[in-house]
Simulated scan of single mutants.
Amino acid sequence: MLYDCVEATADLDLKDRDAITRGVRDAYGDSHWVDVEGIVDAIQDPRTPAGVAYRFYLNNIQENADGWVTKDSWELCFSEEDPIQPGEQISIGFDGSLRGDSSGIIGCRLRDGKLFKLGLWENPRTDPEWEVDVLSVEAAVHNAFRTYKVEWMYGDPPYWQEALGRWAMEFGEDRVFEYWTNRPTRMAQATERFHSAVAMQDLKHENDPDLSRHVLNAVTREVPQGILITKDSPRSKKKIDLAVCAILAFEARADAIADGRLNARRRRVIGF
């Protein structure tokens, strides 16, 4: 068996166009027919995960090449200014489990896309009988709606479909919606929008250690519909549930704004 593969120099700065251009030329060798500039454009497209850039365009497999969001790009989105205050308009992303995985709730401020943690229930892996505290999750959701002006909530229904239905009846069917994360087309589009927002610093976060840990734990999984995120292995202890929540919260923010809810006064109908 003959194997021919030329790798670009390792650890290239994907933001350095000149370095990337040299790397592409190295990787493609005497393949003079390739569109070098087009490949460089694809590598530097904010929607292209670093793992895809290294693996497909530069023939360069490195540790954590499949990582979804880099630590540097995530840290650039950190903002300690303008903290989120009670009464502000937010959206919510909820991803729930009962036993194996974590359950989490992430909020996202409508006016600037700033993310913050509303709750996390993570399996400590020390108690085989551990279960998510359902009443605590319920209390956190109710507290979020009492504290903030929740304009849009997306929740992944498995295990929690009945609860989502109740919350919709209680808080408004125009504010609480199911969002099935196992539908790859819709989820890949939402994942791409979130990743692009991080790359362009179009979102912010409070540097919550749990949210940061889950976001940086996520790796990419390629499907025909695009890029999804997953754990680095099925049995991995590195959780990513808050990353899923953040994607849902950011997507809920976009849909709330598209619906005209940013700074819009909510009408009240009073019967006599």
Results as ranks from 00 to 15, higher is better:
171 F>G: 09
83 P>I: 05
145 F>Y: 12
268 R>G: 09
47 R>W: 06
89 Q>G: 00
203 L>P: 00
248 L>F: 15
189 Q>G: 07
80 E>G: 10
173 E>W: 11
219 V>E: 08
93 G>L: 12
86 P>H: 07
235 R>I: 11
240 I>Q: 13
232 D>A: 05
58 L>W: 02
218 A>I: 04
235 R>W: 04
213 R>Q: 11
7 E>H: 09
246 A>V: 02
171 F>N: 01
204 K>L: 11
50 A>L: 02
21 T>P: 12
48 T>P: 02
33 W>V: 01
51 G>A: 09
36 V>N: 14
181 T>N: 02
235 R>Y: 05
71 K>F: 02
94 F>M: 13
95 D>E: 09
153 M>G: 01
216 L>P: 04
128 P>Q: 05
60 N>M: 08
62 Q>K: 04
196 S>Q: 15
177 F>M: 11
100 G>H: 12
27 A>L: 00
135 L>G: 14
217 N>R: 11
229 I>Q: 02
116 F>G: 05
83 P>M: 06
206 E>A: 05
203 L>S: 03
29 G>Q: 12
261 R>G: 07
44 Q>M: 03
70 T>S: 15
173 E>D: 12
269 V>F: 13
52 V>M: 07
127 D>E: 14
3 Y>P: 06
40 V>P: 06
198 V>A: 12
152 W>V: 03
129 E>T: 08
28 Y>L: 09
133 D>N: 14
93 G>Y: 11
46 P>W: 06
167 W>Y: 13
117 K>S: 05
38 G>N: 13
112 D>C: 11
27 A>E: 05
27 A>I: 01
115 L>C: 01
21 T>K: 05
